[in-house]
Design a binder for these strands. Structure first.
Lengths: 178, 178
DNA sequence: GCTCAAATGTACCACCCGGTCCAATATAGC
DNA sequence: GCTATATTGGACCGGGTGGTACATTTGAGC
């Protein structure tokens, strides 16, 4: 589904790859959409699992994570964000799936929010924006970078998007008190 | 296709809406993918047509255009970017279609590039980044904003993404000479 | 070892999909 | 008005789709 899209992947494709029968599939999932929601959740878990290995509340950790995102996009041959690439098609398929996508993004945002909140409480950044807002902006930059990078088969859009948001965050570093 | 996605829209859906027969479709287009490429081109034309009404090389024009993008997303009930929403599914469908998407984005970027080049040549901005790079960053921000906005059914991601890139561009205004 | 529910295999289905084919019709050029 | 070509109508098709029905096997608990 990640590689070929939701509708580009038939149940038989999946079952063949999983060496399973249809009964198993319908025993555990109520429909293809239901399975798709589970796939989305799985993808999010993978992404957050990798992300957790970085101390995003530090500048070096944040930067390292960004670098890994970029390297991952290259390693996965420009196939896009494991979560975001499913988002557009799912959002258009049904209201339920769209809600699942929203939930996934909001969950992702909340993990970023925690990092920014740590930064804020430790005085590393100072801004009128809430940590939640910073998280949303950051995730949007990530997704935009992925989208263009995948279409153009070029890492540069990701590099630039992430650099933009990184620079912005750095600009929030409080000036040393006089 | 814009509303329900490429594979979520059958030929019969299209032909019914157009009150046309299959023969007509296959007389003018060689396949559904071929039609899809034409749809993408059409969408890009629409977007660029609207964009052309703004003088993006001015700060007020740029800002006004961003505002219109945001209002448009609301007016179209959070269905996403007319171009970008087709991008992910098309990129995954076939290499040809992916190339069409890339072409569309690059065309879009080139129009932005012209605006930034004007800004640069007139001394309104000063940066190591080329106008083309600024254009790519801007388009990525737009797409990221759309993506999250559509999934979350909330304008804020777009507002924040565009604000981020706008602020960045403003930061490139040269300091007055001493 | 028996029971019963959970799990799995298999066959099947109605429907829809993109695409083809060929006949019918309009239209432009003379 | 005749012809040649562009355009359109409509029937048809093979294959693939998600989903269902039901029989069978597995395995946990007693």
């Amino acid at each position: 589904m990640y590689e070929r899209g939701l509708r580009g992947t038939s149940l038989e494709d999946i079952l063949r790859a999983a060496d399973a029968g249809k009964s198993q599939m319908y025993h555990y999932f109520s429909s293809k959409d239901d399975l798709a929601a589970a796939v989305l959740e799985h993808q999010l878990t993978q992404v957050l699992g990798q992300q957790q290995r970085f101390r995003l509340e530090t500048w070096s950790g944040l930067r390292a994570w960004f670098d890994v995102l970029i390297e991952g996009q290259k390693a996965r041959e420009f196939r896009g964000c494991p979560v975001g690439s499913l988002a557009v098609e799912m959002s258009a398929t049904s209201e339920e799936l769209r809600a699942s996508v929203a939930e996934a993004f909001l969950h992702w945002q909340s993990t970023l929010e925690q990092a920014f909140e740590k930064m804020r409480s430790r005085g590393r950044i100072e801004t009128d924006d809430t940590p939640a807002e910073l998280a949303q902006t950051t995730l949007a930059a990530i997704q935009g970078g992925y989208l263009l990078s995948t279409a153009e088969q070029d890492l540069q859009p990701m590099v630039r998007s992430l650099k933009l948001v990184y620079t912005h965050l750095r600009s929030l570093i409080p000036r040393a008190l006089p």
